[in-house]
Structures are given as structure tokens and as C-alpha cells.
Amino acid sequence: MLRDAIQTATIAAMKARDSARLGALRLINAALKNKDIELRTGTAPADDDVLVTDVLMKMAKQRRESIEMFDMGGRAELAAVERAELSVIESFMPTQMDDAEALAAIKAIVAEIGATSVKDMGRVMATVKERFAGKLDMSKASGLVKAALG
């Protein structure tokens, strides 16, 4: 589904001669192809959209880090290129849960599992990742789980 949308957008960018968007879409396609090659020895993913979303989240994180570094280094033109790529990447990502939604979902999981201390964090994080992969940044989720358990 997401893969098809990315392909369709790539073709539309070619027809529109939108070189900036086309470049970002080609980067996405290359990252997906690399992930496919990497997983070739393993089992096929049950849900391709989860795989694509995972790749997109990693690419978005890389772009955010690059933007921060370029801004600190005074390279506004390079930061602008990264921001443009980030906006294209984020256009294909599912909407992310806000902090209030995420905290409520995590508290529900903690209650459901019966977690009582930080020792149960692994079980809670596994359930959070299983249910909310792609909708919640796991690094942010980690902090919220610690807060819910602490």
C-alpha cells in the first residue's frame, strides 16, 4: 500500500519535473530496496506497511539529526535541503500519536499486563511496539513507559 503510493508519487514527480521531490522519493525507494535486500535471508514481513513505515521513521530521524547539525554549523542551505526531504518522507508516514494519547495507551497496557516496576519495562515495551509500531516513536515511548512505571 505505502510502497504503491511512493511509486505513484515518484512517477507523478517525474511527470511534473519536480526534481527536489523526485530526489527524495528516489532516496526512499533506495532505502526500501536496501531493506529488502537485507531481509532476503530472513522471513518475509507479515505486513509490508510496517516495514516501509520503519524505514521511513529511520530516514526521518536521520534527517532531523542532520538538520540539527547543519543548523549548529551555520549551513542553512544544507539544512533547507534536509528539511525538504524530511517533508516528503513525513508525507508518507502515518500520523503519529501525540503525548497524551501515547501516555494513555501506555498506561492501559501497563494495567493490562499488570506491570508494577521498571523490571517489567521489557514486557511493556514489547507490547507497545507490537501494537503501535509506526504510530509512536519508540524512543519517546521508552521515556513514557519509564514515567508510567516509576
Rank of each mutant, 00 (worst) to 15 (best):
L2I: 11
L2P: 07
L2W: 06
R3S: 14
D4V: 10
A5N: 10
A5L: 13
A5T: 02
I6Y: 01
I6T: 12
Q7C: 14
T8K: 05
T10G: 09
T10I: 09
I11W: 04
A12V: 14
A13R: 01
K15M: 13
K15C: 12
K15N: 13
R17G: 04
D18W: 07
S19C: 12
R21F: 10
L25R: 01
L25W: 00
L25V: 02
R26S: 11
L27P: 00
L27C: 05
I28C: 10
I28W: 05
A30L: 09
A30G: 13
A31V: 03
K33M: 13
K33H: 06
K33Q: 11
N34T: 10
K35F: 06
E38R: 06
L39F: 07
G42V: 04
T43R: 13
T43N: 14
A44L: 13
D47W: 01
D48S: 07
D48Q: 08
D48R: 09
D49P: 10
V50I: 11
T53L: 00
D54S: 13
D54N: 09
D54Q: 08
L56Y: 00
L56Q: 01
L56D: 05
K58D: 15
K58R: 15
M59N: 03
A60E: 08
A60W: 00
Q62P: 01
R64F: 00
R64Q: 14
I67N: 09
E68P: 03
F70T: 10
D71K: 12
D71W: 00
G73F: 00
G73P: 00
G73C: 06
G74C: 14
L78S: 05
A80N: 14
V81R: 04
R83I: 05
E85Y: 03
L86F: 04
S87M: 12
V88E: 02
V88S: 04
V88Q: 01
I89A: 11
E90V: 08
F92D: 14
F92C: 12
M93N: 06
M93W: 03
T95A: 15
E101K: 12
A102D: 05
I109V: 10
V110Y: 00
G114A: 10
G114N: 11
A115H: 00
A115E: 07
D120L: 05
M121R: 04
G122Q: 11
M125E: 11
M125V: 03
M125L: 12
V128Y: 02
V128H: 05
K129E: 15
E130T: 11
R131T: 04
R131D: 04
F132P: 03
L136P: 08
D137R: 05
M138F: 07
S139L: 14
K140T: 13
G143K: 07
L144A: 10
A148Y: 00
A148E: 08
L149A: 09
